[in-house]
Design a protein around this nucleic acid. Structure first.
Lengths: 346, 346
DNA sequence: TATTCATTGGTTGTCGTTACATCTAATTTA
DNA sequence: TAAATTAGATGTAACGACAACCAATGAATA
């Protein structure tokens, strides 16, 4: 390949204009396919642009247009299957519309989340999409977006208090209901529950859904079998050991993510507990690991694709219609259905 | 929370300057902690900035400085465990230095990769980090970066032909050697090999490493048991069916990723083939799934953290030293060691 | 023939920040 | 005491693209 160090100087539309004896405005219009430019001129301009090695300067363009064409995204961790799928789907849609996605990870740290929000705010992203960190209970770091009318959409892990942003969440309440009902139908009345912290919308709602159906079925959830904590494998093992340390032992475990469900299966295997005969397990998220382990785990699918689809739709709508932003007092919340994927642990 | 729609107008440093009766230049310096500004003025400026709801305009700043403070990243898929870990590690390091990472996915499509490279080129990223798509054999879409002296680093899946960019790759040749030796030591002489396409550096080198040790051990790799294809679960199943359709059957399978290794374990389970007694399996990447399946799979760890560390180091070096870019004819290639994680499939 | 108007293009000014070159007053040095 | 230095602040000119407004041409219409 050829290296052309002479071309190293950046050319601007002014250089093209000079070379062609036209004005910079004409060049700008030609490159942007403005209809006010004749086909002939457009062609001349574009050819000269290539010849000179011109490249569009989006900094200048952004400054002038007051639009960065960048959407900020804050997720807890991209390594979570749900979010990885979501990101991919969202990115594909936005790319078609000429937007880039700035993907950031909070690592489930409130402090990092705050810092990222500020950075993205200063970076002048055209919109922000957020799935909150585990313990975020104050949303002041997003106020700037609200005040400036910059589209702000929360998805999956959304604010638990009233906050004037758009919200697209999974039907976590229903997820709790489905899981609870399923276990009841399987004849379980002694259920252990390993959940994420209740500061987080998704776990709070799943818990409510679960408790609702258990109450209806007159099944009580023993306090000693309930855990609300970060859902790591390590925490799961600790809780499982605690659960199975006593004389009485549960018939089922509802784990609020699949990492925990996987840990439960491994724990049972280690302890020689038969699944599903002696212990039923249901997870959440439909992570690929849930289907690979033996026995494969019954879990709740959150349909990240569908969620991304809805977020993208709403986002592009808000981005286009300045009005939509002002008058969106109603209809700010959408719920995406969940479905159970039944496998061999129940 | 309070919504202050009056504050909606964007303030610039000029507004701060006016409000304070100083010049815009002074405000700029004060906000950037330039030492040529008195402590008193600096404080006054910063307070007024907060009072007016000022936010830094990085578009204007970028235009002026000719630096976007954004690093482009192109990966095949963020859902691949190796890349997810790599991204997270890289991002954490760059964030500390004030850089943002623009993460893009090629979805293993050459066309998408080309489009992304062009977009990132026009977006004026300060540097580009790339892991190539499966079938990328031409690198012209990165020439712009080379010509302009913009730092360009390939990692993991790197160009197979000579290309004047920086390269940080895993020791895939050694990975092939290790896997091959391990299987030979286990007494296997009939080995099936499911690899990615040889257009891709990593698979090419693993293949060479494997062939080298097999030759040394006088073990031949049967053509009918060699596959070079996209490493999806579906392709894996097809190949496995083909492999086990004949009379003769292999003693071991070397799968060049863990998706394939997982498929092999599942296939063996379905066919009632005993692992590792009748069939040994070794994978590649140390994906979490490899440790969760039963039996857990022996695999090669590529140390994505370490690779990210090296990429970040080189990147920041190139970004700082303009000279480093010019005189980097030598030392453009680094190799990151791999290690085998032995589990129950061998 | 006079008037309209569509087509094509040019002129000017602006976006917000910051580097460079100055400038002023106070302080230090010879 | 005069000259030199310096701390602190200022003014101005880009950076590159593009929107808003304006101007010239020629064809179509009245």
């Amino acid at each position: 390949m050829k290296i052309d160090k002479n071309e190293n100087t950046e050319k601007s539309i002014v250089d093209i204009a000079k070379a062609l004896g036209v004005s910079a405005a004409t060049v700008s219009r030609a490159l942007n396919d403005n209809p006010r430019i004749s086909e002939a001129t457009r062609k001349r301009v574009k050819e000269k642009a290539i010849e000179l090695g011109y490249r569009h300067n989006s900094m200048a363009s952004s400054l002038r247009n007051k639009k960065s064409k960048i959407i900020g995204l804050i997720v807890p961790r991209i390594s979570m299957y749900f979010h990885a799928v979501f990101i991919t789907a969202l990115q594909n849609r936005l790319q078609n519309e000429g937007y880039s996605l700035m993907v950031c990870q909070s690592n489930d740290s409130v402090a990092v989340e705050q810092k990222l929000a500020n950075t993205l705010y200063s970076s002048r992203v055209d919109a922000l999409v957020v799935s909150l960190a585990l313990y975020t209970e104050n949303y002041a770091h997003f106020d700037g977006f609200i005040n400036r009318g910059i589209p702000l959409i929360f998805y999956d892990r959304v604010p638990t208090k009233d906050y004037p942003a758009h919200i697209i969440q999974g039907d976590d309440y229903r997820g709790g209901v489905i899981a609870g009902n399923h276990l009841i139908e399987m004849g379980c009345s002694k259920i252990a529950y390993i959940s994420g912290p209740l500061s987080c919308s998704i776990y709070r709602e799943r818990t409510e859904g679960l408790k609702h159906v258990l109450k209806k079925a007159k099944v009580t959830l023993a306090k000693k079998w309930c855990f609300y904590q970060e859902l790591t494998a390590e925490n799961a093992w600790n809780s499982l050991r605690q659960i199975f340390a006593g004389d009485e032992v549960p018939e089922a475990i509802f784990a609020s993510n699949d990492t925990t469900a996987v840990a439960a299966v491994e724990f049972a295997r280690e302890q020689g507990i038969k699944i599903p005969q002696e212990l039923k397990i249901i997870g959440y998220s439909n992570d690929p690991r849930a289907s690979i382990i033996s026995p494969p785990i019954t879990t709740i699918d959150q349909h990240p694709d569908e969620m991304a689809h809805r977020v993208a739709y709403k986002l592009l709508h808000l981005l286009k219609d300045k009005n939509a932003r002002e008058h969106a007092e109603t209809n700010r919340k959408e719920i995406v259905p969940v479905t159970m994927v039944r496998r061999m642990t129940t």
